[in-house]
Design a protein around this nucleic acid. Structure first.
Length: 955
RNA sequence: GGGCGGAUAGCUCAGCCGGUUAGAGCACCAGCCUUACAAGCUGGGGGUCACAGGUUCAAAUCCUGUUCCGCCCACCA
């Protein structure tokens, strides 16, 4: 590729073309492939595997970009970096999608049979797998695709079986009867955290159970689920409840069933709720189950799998759906005069997170992991700092949760997943074989008819719990496992701290004895803008279609009758931002940097397209600064540049920008090491835009335009290039495409090498002392593998002070221009006076820059100037500027000075009040007091000067 | 009910191991197509840092309480 002349580069950065080109370049050169024989310090991350049939959303964009920033940063630090990609089979979610698809085709999984259904899901998986992985590639993630894993592929299946058997043999996996959240639509048990609760307006029925002694008295119980009374086995009261002390041990008639049940005493009953009497249905309520266990009560399951009444119910009700049964039962109770009253009762209803069906608490045989011993180890790891959680406050949430865990139900009545590696003897003896090998255990092979494999599959989180080491080849002792495990950091949303992060910790300690990762970084959740219209007192969501029709997303402010609310993104709210669409509009880099810049720790991330376009502008700024630098430095030879920055020829602005660059490198590096991504971006953003572009480029233009090849001109160009090249390296982790594009333009220019070609490392500084640090990174074939800038300590306070002074002067003149409305084409003369000769010579030497930046015709510097006939005055300490202006502006100048005086007086008041407080002078540290005195003096002299000017204006 | 977090400019946020006239981006106003950039440049307006107390010479920053908002966990039969 020939070197493109800077004049031919487009005025705006074109992301699309650059993205494709560099993605290919990285792939061709296998830059993201990890070498497990490397001796460099290892740095590894496993990706939180997205659902294999999922579609990329901004949440993925965020979590993947954060990881990519870390990975790219550490790769540039020269570490042995591995980022493992992969996808999750996502049991319920995926099965649900395929079931729905089949339903649309008029088919059901039951009629297909297990094998055919699972084959169908695999087909589906293959089809959609490419979609999500391509989207991760689009994002520019520097993962090692040669190590891609899937939670249900053969190596992971092997790991799952081995893990299950290890836990089984240790007695940490067991089978038991347990109250589970039964989803009657998905026909599976759900883990507690797969149930979503919502407040709903329910009904509380107060039902009378007649005492069996024929006294005509009733025990009144209240329930939100009257149909469950068919499974009641007792009525409970609190043992300290005096009202019912005499009833304990008596029997009551259970309506509609002809059964008699006892009244028992149990602490869990609240005396002040309802009548203080509770019906006990151990098979259909968690509390009742626990109570039943305590009292040795029987379990009566009254439901079928799809929540119809079963044969345990009286004949009249059998086969009825639970809600039809409810109506019938309520009606029958009413008819029997056993319904005392009905009241409205707000309560929380649990629904399956996929099917949205109301879950039915139910007793069934399930597999469990005994978590107590595993949790204890994980908690200790966090307490001892063996695993660090950022942000820190999440640790408390973690502890609170870990310390009251129930055993983890790991069986799911699904077909899509890791089938439980247990074979049951069909003889009813309860004999089980746990087998972690391929195929079937030998006993089963010998006599297949006598055995039956457990029908259930494992909870998805069981296999993802092994992810940090199953991806490395565990249980085999692979080179990857030795080199990259434990991993360095786990990045994920705080919403799955418990689902996933805690389980990885437990599994890792339980199975490998090691921590799964050293750090956990939990990012916030992404919120989008929803629009609501005020309707009377209510707020009504503006539906997505209307939102689009009105073009609300393009508006700066919502229409008057609407309000914006930031909410978790969801399709139905219409507040979803599609990352792919954003890629098209603004480029991948803009999306990446926006997400990372807003990912302040531990909160929601509220994002809309205006933010993204703001960062697109930033990238464009970088692009245009680069165009300028390329054009301005065409005369620079590779030798001149690669020799490093010579102290000779450096001007004060060069030393200043290098000093500021060094501080920026330090700030960016520190921020990254602390996961403070917003700080990382802010530091570079500020530096590039506010210092490099706004000041440095402008300050050196004069020297750059010198065509004489002088030492000062060369120095300016070398510094321009060097600073830009290092900024590109600093920004590369977050905007890899744009920086790679520009970096190669520079590299070709300055080394003559094409993108894939290697070049020698920049020569080491020949004359120490005459050459500053800041060597270039062009010896790599890609910015991905260029070294991270290391010059963090170069400081030049004198140059910084001088530039700050020039900024004050230029700012002062510009302020006058702006306030007085002097147009830029009108060049003005300025008289500067300063008592200090050194400052005067600084001013004289900087005169061309002041003239250029402030639109000044002549800058005359003297120890003292006589007052001009008319001038606008700027005062700062020993400096006075008179900006010569037409006398017509006299009145305006008066107003301007009065405003300035007011501002100064406000400052003076505050400072003088502080100083006149004796206690302040006595107690505050001397430097603080001295600083205040200094401030006061400055106010006073500035005020005096301005007052004098005001007087002379009047006179 | 328990826990965690938040309240700073119109919006989104930074500052918070106490000490500048409280900052940024976007939005707003005025003027500029100044040969890197109008996706830009220059200037400007805008905040009693939720409220009430307290500690301190000094509080956006530390402590207590109140109000409101968000999230997580448990759960009311």
């Amino acid at each position: 590729m020939a070197v493109t002349p800077a004049s031919e580069l487009p005025k705006n950065f074109q992301p699309r073309d650059a993205e494709d080109r560099w993605r290919r370049h990285w792939e061709e050169h296998r830059l993201f492939h990890a070498d497990n024989t490397s001796t460099a310090p290892a740095y590894s991350i496993v990706i939180p595997p997205p659902n294999v049939t999922g579609v990329l959303h901004l949440g993925h964009g965020l979590v993947q970009t954060i990881q990519d920033v870390l990975i790219r940063h550490h790769r540039m630090l020269g570490e042995n970096v591995l980022w493992v990609p992969g996808t999750d089979h996502a049991g319920i979610a995926t099965q649900h999608v395929v079931v729905e698809k089949l339903r649309a085709e008029g088919r059901t999984r039951q009629e297909m049979g297990r094998e055919a259904f699972v084959a169908e899901v695999w087909k589906w998986k293959h089809e959609y797998h490419a979609r999500i992985t391509n989207q991760i590639k689009l994002l520019g993630c520097s993962v090692d695709w040669e190590r891609e894993a899937f939670t249900l592929d053969e190596p992971r299946a092997h790991a799952v079986r081995v893990a299950f058997k290890m836990l089984f043999d240790q007695g940490l996996v067991y089978r038991g009867k347990y109250m589970v959240n039964w989803d009657p639509v998905s026909l599976t048990a759900l883990a507690d955290d797969e149930v979503e609760y919502e407040d709903e307006e329910g009904t509380l029925w107060h039902i009378k159970y007649p005492f069996a002694d024929g006294s005509g008295q009733f025990a009144v119980v209240a329930t939100t689920r009257p149909e469950t009374l068919l499974g009641d086995v007792a009525v409970a009261v609190n043992p300290t409840d005096e009202r019912y002390a005499a009833s304990i041990g008596q029997m009551v008639e259970l309506p509609l069933t002809g059964r008699r049940i006892p009244i028992i005493a149990d602490d869990f009953v609240k005396k002040d709720f309802g009548s203080g009497m509770v019906k006990i249905t151990p098979a259909h309520d968690p509390n009742d189950f626990a109570c039943g266990q305590r009292h040795g009560l029987v379990l009566i399951n009254i439901f079928t799998d799809d929540a119809r009444l079963n044969e345990s119910a009286p004949e009249d009700y059998r086969g009825l759906d639970r809600y039809d049964a409810r109506e019938r039962i309520v009606a029958d109770l009413k008819a029997a005069g056993l319904l005392e009253r009905i009241e409205k009762h707000p309560h929380r209803v649990g629904r399956g997170y996929r099917s949205k069906a109301i879950v039915e608490p139910r007793i069934s045989d399930q597999w469990f992991v005994k978590v107590a011993p595993l949790a204890e180890r994980a908690v200790r790891a966090v307490r001892d700092g063996e695993i660090r959680i950022a942000p820190k406050h999440q640790e408390n949430t973690f502890f609170a949760w870990m310390e009251n865990l129930r055993d983890w139900c790991i069986s799911r009545q699904l077909w899509w997943g890791h089938r439980i590696p247990i074979w049951h003897a069909k003889d009813g003896s309860g004999t089980m074989i746990c087998w972690d090998g391929d195929g079937v255990p030998p006993e089963v092979a010998a006599n297949p008819a006598a055995w039956e494999q457990d029908n259930d599959v494992l909870d998805t989180w069981f296999s993802s719990g092994l992810w940090p080491f199953s991806t490395m080849g565990w249980p085999e002792k692979t080179a990857d496992l030795r080199t990259y495990f434990p991993t360095s950091v786990l990045v994920t949303g705080h919403d799955i701290l418990f689902f996933w992060v805690a389980r990885m910790m437990m599994m890792s300690y339980g199975l490998t004895g090691q921590r799964p990762f050293a750090d956990v970084f939990l990012h916030g959740l992404i919120f989008g803008k929803s629009y609501y219209r005020r309707r009377g007192g209510d707020m009504e969501l503006v539906p997505p279609a209307e939102r689009m029709r009105l073009g609300l997303d393009e508006m700066e402010q919502p229409p008057k009758d609407m309000e914006v609310k930031w909410e978790k993104m969801s399709k139905s709210k219409g507040n979803v931002i599609d990352p792919i669409e954003m890629f098209d509009l603004f480029g991948v880099d803009s999306v990446r940097i926006s997400l990372v810049a807003y990912s302040g720790q531990g909160r929601t991330i509220e994002i809309d397209r205006q933010r993204i376009s703001g960062y697109r502008n930033f990238i464009n700024k970088l692009w245009n600064a680069s165009r300028f630098v390329l054009a301005a430095t065409e005369s620079i030879t590779p030798e001149q540049f690669r020799g490093g920055i010579l102290a000779e020829g450096l001007a004060r602005e060069d030393r200043w920008i290098l000093s500021r660059l060094s501080e920026c490198i330090d700030a960016a590096t520190t921020a990254l090491s602390r996961y403070e991504f917003d700080q990382y971006i802010a530091a570079i953003y500020r530096f590039l835009w506010d210092e490099y572009c706004d000041w440095y480029l402008e300050l050196v233009k004069g020297r750059v335009y010198l065509k004489d090849g002088s030492c000062t001109s060369v120095a300016a160009k070398v510094v321009l290039l060097s600073v830009l090249e290092q900024v590109l390296r600093l920004l590369h982790p977050v905007i890899p495409f744009a920086t790679e594009e520009i970096w190669h333009l520079l590299r070709e220019r300055l080394t003559g090498a094409a993108a894939g070609e290697k070049v020698p490392e920049a020569p080491a500084p020949a004359e120490a002392g005459k050459v500053l640090g800041f060597r270039d990174g062009f010896h790599g074939i890609s910015l991905c593998v260029a070294p991270w800038p290391t010059d963090r300590t170069f400081r030049d306070p004198a140059a910084c002070a001088e530039i700050d002074f020039l900024k004050v002067i230029i700012g002062g003149i510009r302020n006058i221009r702006g306030e007085m409305g002097v147009p830029l084409e009108m060049k003005i003369d300025v008289l500067a006076q300063h008592a200090d000769p050194a400052t005067r010579s600084l001013l004289e030497s900087a005169a061309p820059q002041v003239q250029a930046l402030a639109g000044v015709a002549a800058l005359t510097v003297a120890e003292h100037h006589a007052p001009a006939p008319f001038a606008s005055t700027f005062v700062s300490g020993a400096l006075t500027l008179q900006v010569l202006l037409p006398a017509a502006l006299r009145e305006q100048e008066g107003a301007r000075l009065s405003k300035e005086l007011l501002r100064l007086r406000k400052g003076w008041d505050v400072t003088s009040a502080k100083l006149s407080n004796e206690k302040f002078a006595n107690s505050a540290p001397a430097p603080v007091v001295e600083k205040e005195r200094e401030k006061l003096r400055a106010y006073e002299s500035d005020m005096a000067a301005i007052e004098a000017k005001l007087q002379s204006l009047k006179g």
